[in-house]
Design a protein around this nucleic acid. Structure first.
Lengths: 344, 344
DNA sequence: ATATTTACTGATAACGATTGCAGATAACCT
DNA sequence: AGGTTATCTGCAATCGTTATCAGTAAATAT
């Protein structure tokens, strides 16, 4: 009940606390066997708090994500967790994409953790400056803030993925291609929008204003955006949705409006999801290894911690690839002209 | 860069460290304004480590789950996170349902956290004894271990839910009702199996040995189990799957085998999932508020911490309810006899 | 004006571990 | 045996706070 300290062990064995401490740190000591015994009998566990105070290290690495409920972030966290190693643990902070909470969390984190892996909600915030002020190591994952180059990061090939997605729709013969985009203030939002525009430009298709909707990466946002698209006088024949949650929302909107995929509209999403291959038709998506992204971020963090402050920021990218399923087809009007190739 | 301590602030203001400390703890001090100023100018942050050492509290509550990738546990974690309050944080441990990792985590947690909310993988482990040894507060969520009554817990109405599910199938006229169950070693596995058996007994339907498969709550497990059921000489006309991941696996098996739902087989799952209402047909499930379960667990933990050791364990239950969608219908042979009522 | 209460303050000892230093013991060499 | 290393050991300072205790200044009472 009452906490047993290193002094208790020392008394029991009849040596000084220093000897116990040295035993614990792996030095060879005379009564090693007695000490081991006393420790196990007394059930002694070194106080983490005292160690922290002396060493300045906590053995805890924080990971700050906007929404743990998003399977993508869950995978990131799991990846990070899997790479953390035996002597450290992961502290999770879920900010709900609320900047205020994010900032408060950061200030609370200082002193409690050895480093922070984070996917910031927005780019504008001054959080990184805040951090560098304290010299707390930081690794960005999936998103970066303004002066992101100064910190290590693990991003995805967002632009390439978006280009791939848009190109896929174009190659099916679409030209009325809409995009439901994420917020322009976050890295994936901006980069994916860039990729879309790039692909359209390459194909010399003009981006119609009404076809580009900046939404917010949430299911509700995707749902609303798709409804807006469907309400247009000439709705798009294809839509690229910039993340999994918005895809979910968009699909709900389509199902409600009884618009058939891919006959009436082709859909391609960014980031895979459990539902994607189960629904009818299964949804074609741009996919990446989120778990890997998380573990790479953790590896970068650990390297940074062991290198000390002398290390330079490293930037890593995980690749994206097209997972072709059944949600893309040629647009209706050209369907009869083109050869009848049906996806899987 | 170099850490600024309470002593630096004291020197700057020209008072003793005690005064600064008192200011920080909310006492009225003479030079409050000067102190506030000095703190902000020096950018002083109290050392969490030193505070921990003195107070014995860390302001961190751990939550230990088998798999953060499972949306159900993600929701639990999010719920707990949302209820943690301003002065504490959540430390996440993902054990991958590996008992060894679970135990190691527990031993590492001691001294680093004020309490542990956990969903243990199995009931047999001696973890709770291990914990009570140290007097570390613990709240079980979703699952309990052997002597679970001694600790607070927040469970779901598992048996009731399973009875509801099975009864729903029975009310559609099914009698060849299979169950893909979770491991009998974990609370939800056992209780849901109990509920299934109870409902069958009430309806005086014998449980056929081959129709009850004890699986492992994973997608792969559910997939395999469903394949086994389909391979039977007389396969079931309805199946109750004991969790969301196994439902996912089962649905994949059914889709592969081109068995149509609900015409050839009725399916009902336990725990909702994003995919459930999107696929065709949408899947009928037993649902509960996992987020609430998580926040209740956190509330119990916080209450326990403030009550000191004098508090008695409290047991809370969250309700379950049937979400009727389109995956259940009368069995084929009786379809023509019964009135033609089609779900939604 | 003196006595008594009130309101702060500073010095200092914890909290539980780690570490440099000097001393002690043992092991080795000639 | 005496001298030199090589090993191990205990003492005490230290990490940054908080809490106790006695002390001082101000406010109030008489």
């Amino acid at each position: 009940m009452s906490t047993v300290t290193i002094t208790d062990v020392a008394k029991r064995v009849g040596v000084s606390v220093a000897t116990i401490s040295r035993y614990l740190s792996g030095f060879t000591v005379r009564n090693a066997e007695d000490i081991r015994e006393a420790i196990s009998e007394l059930n002694y566990r070194p106080s983490a708090a005292a160690r922290n105070l002396k060493s300045g290290r906590t053995g805890i690495i924080a990971i700050v994500v906007p929404d743990i409920t998003n399977p993508f972030f869950a995978a990131i966290v799991e990846g990070a967790e899997s790479a953390v190693g035996d002597d450290r643990m992961v502290l999770l902070v879920n900010t709900g994409a609320i900047r205020e909470r994010e900032e408060k969390a950061l200030s609370q984190l200082f002193g409690r953790v050895d480093g922070v892996i984070m996917a910031p909600s927005t780019e504008e915030q001054h959080a990184p400056a805040f951090f560098s002020q304290f010299g707390l190591p930081i690794v960005f994952v999936d998103r970066v803030t303004q002066d992101g180059e100064r910190f290590s990061s693990v991003l995805a090939e967002n632009a390439k993925g978006a280009e791939l997605a848009t190109g896929h729709l174009i190659s099916h013969g679409h030209s009325k291609i809409a995009m439901i985009s994420g917020p322009n203030s976050a890295t994936p939002g901006k980069k994916r929008a860039d990729g879309y525009r790039q692909a359209m430009k390459k194909a010399k298709i003009e981006v119609i204003h009404d076809f580009f909707i900046e939404s917010d990466f949430t299911e509700a946002g995707g749902n609303l955006a798709m409804k807006q698209l469907l309400a247009l006088d000439t709705p798009p024949t294809a839509v690229f949705v910039a993340n999994n949650l918005m895809t979910l929302g968009a699909l709900h909107a389509l199902s409600e409006a009884e618009v058939s995929i891919p006959q009436e509209i082709s859909v391609i999403g960014f980031d895979d999801h459990d539902f994607a291959d189960l629904i009818n038709p299964p949804i074609t998506v741009i996919s990446r290894d989120a778990r890997l992204q998380g573990s790479q971020a953790m590896e970068l963090m650990i390297k940074q911690l062991s290198d000390g402050s002398a290390s330079h920021p490293e930037h890593s990218m995980v690749d994206v690839h097209l997972v072709e399923r059944g949600s893309c087809a040629p647009p209706r009007e050209s369907q009869k002209i083109r050869s009848n190739k049906k996806a899987r």
